[in-house]
Structure formats: C-alpha cells, structure tokens
Design a protein around this nucleic acid. Structure first.
Length: 120
RNA sequence: GGAGUUGGCUCGGCAAUCGCUUGGCGGUGCACUUUGCGCCGCUAAGAGGAAAGUCCGGGCUCCAUAGGGUAGGGCGCCAGAUAACGUCUGGGGGAUGCGAGUCUACGGAAAGUGCAGCAGAAAAGAAACCGCCCGAUGAGGUCUUUCCUCAUUGUGGUAAGGGUGAAAUGGUGCGGUAAGAGCGCACCGCGCAACUGGUAACAGUUUGUGGCAAGGUAAACCCCGCUCGGAGCAAGAUCAAAUAGGAAUCCUAUUGCUUUAAGCAAAAGGCGUGACCCGCGCUGGAUUCGGGUAGAUUGCUAAAGAUAUAUGGUGACAUGUAUCGUAGAUGAAUGAUUGUCCACGACAGAACCCGGCUUACAGGUUGGCUCCUUUA
C-alpha cells in the first residue's frame, strides 16, 4: 500500500495557480471537478479546494477531504507524474462515504485514461 | 408505581488490515563546524460539551500616555466570590405554580422635557355624556296653595350609579347631605417619621403622624451612582531571496576649463538588444551598512492546570499537602475498509490561551426534592 507524505501534496499558492492556469486534463462531474497538469516529477501531487460556500459544516468538509485523500492514496500506485486539484461542488457534503469514494474513483480513472492517451 | 422538578457523569464498544500529525529512542543517506535537511524502524500521544455563535470578561502583544474634564458606550435590589465580568454564590422584593421549583432590565416619575392608537364626556393640577339634585319658565294632573309628572333652560351643584378603556384621582360600611363627596368616623390600604431586627437590600399583629397630597411610561430623552484608551496571534519577534529609493568606505579613466584637492561639460569605454557591424536604449565600478517583500522560524502550549485529600466557609470559593505532566495542525493531522455486538450512534471539528453566557442536540446512566395513588 502506498503512503501519503507531505511532498505528495500541493503546498504553496504558486503551485495551485500553476495548475489552475491552463490545465490540459480535466474531469467534470455533478459533485466535483478534477484538474490535472504534468509536474515533471516521479510522483503525483494532490491539492484540495473545498469551499465553505459549497459544503457548509466543518465536519463535512473534513470528511470529504479525508475521503478524497484516501482515494488518491489508493490509486497512486500507478503514478502518472501529474499535479491534480480536486474541487468540491455543491451537494458533495450530503452524500455518504461509499458514494463519495465511488464518484472520486471514477474520476481518477477518467483522468488516468486521458493522461495515458496523451503520453502515446 | 405514576407525574413532575433539579443537579452530576457519559457520547458507540471490540478486533483485523492500510494510512495521517507531533514527541521520544535507535539506525541510516546527503551537506558537514556546532548542526541542518531527508529516509526507515520501534514506541507514546492525538477534538468537544458545546470545539459553534463571537455576545461579555481577563491574560498576552503592539500602538501608545490613558493624569483631569467633555463627548460616547456599558452596567444598575443588597452582600459576597473572583484575575475580571454583563458570570457565579447567598439573601431580599415582585410574578407564577397545590408543591419541589421557575421567571424577574429589580435605581430615580414630589429636577425638567416628551409620549399615550381605538374607545370614551374627559387621558393629567382634571372632566358633567347619560343619570341624580337645585333654581327659573311653560304644560298637564289635582278643587286651590302645597304636592306629583313631563318638557325647555342655567357663567347652577354633584364623581354615589351607568357606559369606554390596559389605566378614570384609594376600598368597605355607617353617619351626613338638596343630591353627593375623606365632608366626618371605624376598619383595611397608602405616604412620612421613629423604634425594633438585619452588615445591607428589606421586614414588622410595634408607635406616632398625614385625610390621601404622589396615575402610567425611564429596554423615551433624561437624572443619579459605578465603570470603560485602541487594535488584535493575519497581534508581535527573529532570519531573509527580490525590488524601490538611500548611507558610508575604497578604487578608477581620456580631453577641455578652473590654482592643488575636487567640480562641471563632452567624448570614449562598459552593459542590454544582436552571429557581427551600423543603429537604438541605459550608464562610473566594487564592498559594506541599511531596508524589508515572497518565503522560513518563532509566538504555540506548564496553564488563574487536572485529580485526590485535609481544613475554613451556608455557598460561590480560598488555603495546604500528595500525585500527574494531558492535541499543537498551518493548502491545515486524529481517518478508511471489513467483521462483530448492542441501546443502531444526536448536535457537531481545536487554530494564541483561559473564565463565562447564548444557541444546537438522539440517547444512556445516576443523585436530590415535590405531588398523586396503592400496600403496610
């Protein structure tokens, strides 16, 4: 099983704006949006944008973050070398754990497919 | 047993696998001067009663001078607790409940100003709509004066009765009167003073006194008393790329002008653009100081601390002794999956730290007290 260390996260505002400006890969869903960009590193990196506007309670925000991180950790065995940002949309906080995990896993697969296509 | 009331405690448990943050110990890689930055393993710890709202109070920090006054804000029965409070404890008054209890923004309306819809005659130094009484005039009844009835009228009297209202200038009774009225008296109520009890708020089967003057509203202005400097950990401190404009020292070059120093002017040179030239743009050089942005470190958890116990106090609490050492993230840790048990898990996530208040909330557990019923 993979770990999830500090260098596997986006830590600085500059890194976030880098991904936000012209991301080549995106996967959109009713409840979330994933943006991704190659980072020229061996490993992937994850950033989260969970707006208070979309998920009101701090408890729900924490829960969603943990679920997304867990999902990222489990799928990062096959590394692609990208920086990914997951944005939560309205209503994600109302879903239960298994549904959220399912949705996020699906989106990872779509991103992975797009990245593999472009690398060919 | 039922109904109620009021405190305390608790916030799914267990197991397996995989992870996260911080501390400790050990090993190891890189740079290597202390040491710093990583990696691996073991081990310990890791959200709440409200972490929430940000409504009060305090510590801490900086700005600052805050002493006095004004303005403005806050508080407001009394006494105490406390670092402090708008909190808490005990007591008093009022409201409410059979009761245990619960609620209470509870200073001043005989300093001034203001306000009061609708209804009502009248809403504040009173007022006469109906009614009652009196006088005058007219009509009728009656044999006539008297008396009775009705109508009109009065710079008339009257606050007993009716009706309005949340509220109408004490209540009941007797006397009194043309009718009435604290007009007089008795009792009740009220004000003031004394006395007694209490630290006080306040209380009284106490005494004296006043015929009663003083309607409501101060979460209306206001008055009185007490009290308050401002901003906040994105506070602040340290290190520090970049950049703007600075300071000091040292070094240096061609020509012209002026007496050296040095200054001024021009050219050359240098830098950028570019393969190079022309051209164009900028322009003494170096070092140090200073500056402080991004970023990093710190502030950052040992604290008005927790538990136990003794003593003092009705109590909030205080003092002593013993033991413990209890989250510290920063794009932000405390989780996921599976199994299993049951009551099937509510409200909800630390962000400098404490004391409170308020709001949200499924349950479980336990103590005190009250009322009803049954049995003895």
């Amino acid at each position: 099983m993979s770990k999830f260390c500090k260098h596997q996260r986006l830590l600085k505002a500059a890194e976030y704006t880098n991904v936000f400006s012209d991301p080549p890969f995106r996967a959109s869903h009713q409840y979330c949006l994933i943006l991704a960009k190659p980072n020229n590193l061996e490993h992937d990196r994850l950033g989260l944008v969970i707006a208070k506007k979309h998920i009101r309670l701090a408890v729900d925000r924490n829960r969603i973050k943990r679920l997304i991180r867990e999902s990222f950790r489990q799928q990062s065995r096959n590394s692609m070398g990208i920086d990914a940002i997951v944005l939560a949309r309205k209503g994600l906080g109302d879903l239960d754990n298994s549904t959220v995990t399912k949705i996020v896993n699906q989106q990872w697969l779509r991103i992975e497919k797009k990245v593999r296509m472009s690398q060919r």
